[in-house]
Nucleic acid binder design. Structure first.
Lengths: 239, 239
DNA sequence: GCCGATTTGTCCGTATGTATC
DNA sequence: CGATACATACGGACAAATCGG
């Protein structure tokens, strides 16, 4: 486990905040003290603090100190999307049993309209996959995935039934590093209604995302249509 | 304008990418070249690059180079929420005429239920404001704001009719630095329907946010209920 | 109001590690 | 293997904001 120093400090401080060693609204010890405690350089420590600030765990104040702004029960942490996370990882984190049903699996060539929607270049060979994903047997979302065919050799419907991400990462050694997302609300289509038990809702939450692998190549465009009851997206903004 | 070196480089590079000096999928010059061009240290340059990576403008690749992954017409930039942005800033950026109608303005004391929902401490004095916000005369969203009364002295219904943020920032010298958000989809309430012309939709996009000022004090909890047609939230994830 | 101590913010130069070519 | 390029880490310096006497 080759872990960077700043990452170790980051995790340690994060844990201490979560367990209450540093309480909500309290100030962390000054940088000078922490660098001594961790026996590291100021740069390494400051990088860890900066990551905690990105997570909205702390807020540094010029000339004053670093205040903890994380609080437990920050709304329940269940049923929440975070960062770049696959469906399976999400299920595991919430203690639910995931299952997937592949509804469609085909090769397509990227049309002009599709190019505009997805960001793939026109004429590119793509793999189109439609899947319904359930947790504990209840259908929660419909995935419409487009994979760059050249980047996913050996991807089959059987694989898609399991986890595409673990296939890409473990089999092909690909890493997903960056993902651009947009969230909208749309009227449910007949297809949505046939797959999801929408109950009183006539809308779904739609997350479109473009994902880039470690080569800086966009290899996936996904539109995920979520059941409103099974959708909560958390994020932090700073300026 | 006291601007940090890394920020100047960040803006310069960002502009060059947007105007096409560095094209999509192209590699930036290596760090060594860029530090020479900008006459700065490697640290300053790397910080700028790191910010561009956070914006999904570039993707650094170990041992290879830094590739541009931003592309123009990354879906239209209209009608899009970004970062910590007020309604007025958003309207101006999209060339629309904002207007606001205050529906309610009252002092309340934070109850146990409200404390759990908002994250304010029970018993805190709050200012509750309900506003309907329109663009070019069309109602787009209903805001339910709770402000920490002690942090917003002099806030009146008349001020709320204009911009609360510019009041807080310009009058009180407060800065909003960090904001935690969650996005969900909920059934429209009778109130939603009475304010927004929802048409075929029976749902709204709900953005809840907790905002912290420069003192690290949570001074605002907001629940904004958006018309589905007027809602698009963009974000970037990395891991 | 001033001054000095404390604390965070920015910046630099350098060294070493590691992945890619 | 060597050259290139990004990643991590250290130590030192000065600036800027805050606070207390």
């Amino acid at each position: 486990m080759p872990r960077a120093i700043f990452e170790g400090i980051y995790r340690d401080l994060k844990g201490k905040i979560q367990e209450g060693s540093y309480a909500y609204q309290e100030f962390l010890p000054p940088e000078s003290t922490l660098t001594e405690e961790y026996g590291c350089s100021r740069n390494a420590l400051r990088r860890a603090l900066s990551m905690l600030a990105d997570d909205a765990y702390v807020q540094p104040m010029h000339g004053r100190g670093v205040r903890v702004i994380w609080q437990r029960k920050d709304h329940s942490t269940q049923g929440v999307l975070e960062g770049v996370e696959s469906f399976g990882e999400y299920a595991r984190r919430n203690g639910l049993e995931p299952s997937t049903s592949v509804k469609s699996f085909e090769h397509v060539v990227c049309s002009a309209g599709l190019a505009h929607r997805t960001g793939f270049a026109e004429g590119t060979e793509l793999l189109r996959v439609v899947r319904v994903r359930s947790l504990d047997g209840v259908a929660r979302q419909v995935d419409h995935d487009y994979f760059l065919a050249s980047a996913a050799p050996g991807l089959t419907a059987e694989v898609a039934e399991e986890s595409v991400y673990s296939f890409l990462e473990e089999r092909l050694g690909m890493r997903i590093l960056t993902s651009r997302r947009s969230i909208t609300v749309q009227l449910a289509t007949d297809e949505d209604c046939s797959y999801l038990e929408l109950g009183p809702y006539n809308c779904v939450a739609v997350v479109e995302s473009q994902s880039y692998n470690s080569d800086g190549v966009m290899f996936e465009y996904t539109q995920v249509r979520h059941h409103p009851d099974a959708f909560c997206f958390n994020t932090v903004s700073r300026r």
